[in-house]
């Protein structure tokens, strides 16, 4: 049977991808941020997950605002990156696992999470940069990937609690897949930031650290907040940190935190890295 071997959180902002492309990850501004991934790299190298499920939001590449699915899952053999309007060179295509994806979709929908299934899905920086920061750049990616998109752009958004419950359903979906594969779930985005309005530029370090602690030890503290409460603290774009709760829900009641790292500012954001494994029950 498929097994969830762990969960990771990471930023997905465009600047992270640019820093990798420009080869500046060891320059002063970036060094502490990127170095904080080393324990995650070592863990991935040791555990070698067969598939990673990347929970992210699309920023106007695959989905336009004409149709904004709350939850969407890639169900294809391959996912391509593409120009987001800035003329950046797309990465190599990502290998999916269509059979596994369709199983996940069936199980999630049986569990009353009515996913939008995508047989074609362009993946934008929200998906690509987490994979790049975890694995480096490759012409042939060393891991299969499944994109799971959450609408954090056009309100109404799902609540933090709904994201956590999706994670719980995802755990059941993964663990009911008959193939012996190891799966890691990656929650991306955040942390606090606001890009527009007079309040643009907020970073709330205390709130970010409280969210990180909550994701590890007490997810209810985070998921019992309304989206308005989260936006008030974390900003209009910082709300995307609710996607971490999908990852956390998939790990079960208790987790062991193998690594935690926080840095600010990265571009406009606070950036948090967690590496979690399910604790023995």
């Amino acid at each position: 049977m498929a097994k969830i071997i762990g969960g990771v959180t990471t930023s997905h902002i465009p600047a992270v991808g640019n820093a990798i492309s420009d080869g500046v990850t060891q320059e002063h501004y970036w060094k502490r941020f990127f170095d904080g991934y080393q324990p995650v790299h070592a863990w991935l190298d040791e555990k070698k997950p067969d598939v990673i499920i990347v929970v992210y939001n699309d920023h106007g590449l695959n989905f336009f605002l004409d149709k904004a699915p709350t939850f969407a899952i890639g169900c294809a053999d391959q996912y391509e990156n593409a120009d987001e309007g800035w003329g950046l060179k797309p990465t190599a295509p990502f290998t999916g696992d269509a059979q596994f994806s369709w199983h996940l979709a069936e199980s999630l929908i049986e569990q009353e999470f009515d996913m939008c299934t995508c047989q074609e899905m362009l993946v934008d920086h929200g998906f690509v940069n987490p994979v790049r920061v975890l694995y480096g750049d490759h012409e042939h990616w060393p891991v299969k990937t499944i994109p799971l998109a959450v609408n954090t752009v056009q309100h109404p958004l799902p609540s933090a609690k709904r994201c956590f419950k999706l994670g719980q359903a995802l755990k059941q979906a993964i663990e009911s897949y008959p193939e012996d594969i190891n799966v890691a779930v990656v929650g991306t985005g955040g942390m606090s930031h606001q890009l527009q309005g007079e309040r643009a530029g907020i970073i709330d370090v205390d709130y970010d650290l409280a969210c990180m602690d909550s994701v590890i030890n007490d997810p209810a503290w985070f998921y019992n907040q309304s989206n308005a409460e989260i936006i008030e603290k974390a900003g209009t774009e910082g709300i995307e940190t609710i996607m971490w709760l999908v990852m956390r829900g998939a790990l079960g009641d208790k987790v062991n935190c193998l690594h935690k790292h926080y840095h600010a500012p990265i571009s406009n954001t606070g950036a948090g890295v967690l590496l979690l494994e399910a604790a023995d029950e």
Binding site: G60, F64, L65, D66, V153, Q154, H155, P156, Q194, Q196, G197, E198, R199, A200, S226, N227, A228, I231, E232, G235, T236
Partner: peptide, 24 residues
């Protein structure tokens, strides 16, 4: 309930509706 957060404009149906052609 997010309307009263100072300096903050949440991209909801009202804004998405009025700016649809621009975004498109």
């Amino acid at each position: 309930d997010y309307d009263d957060i100072p300096g903050t404009y949440v991209f909801d149906g009202q804004r998405a509706h009025s700016s649809y052609a621009l975004n498109k």
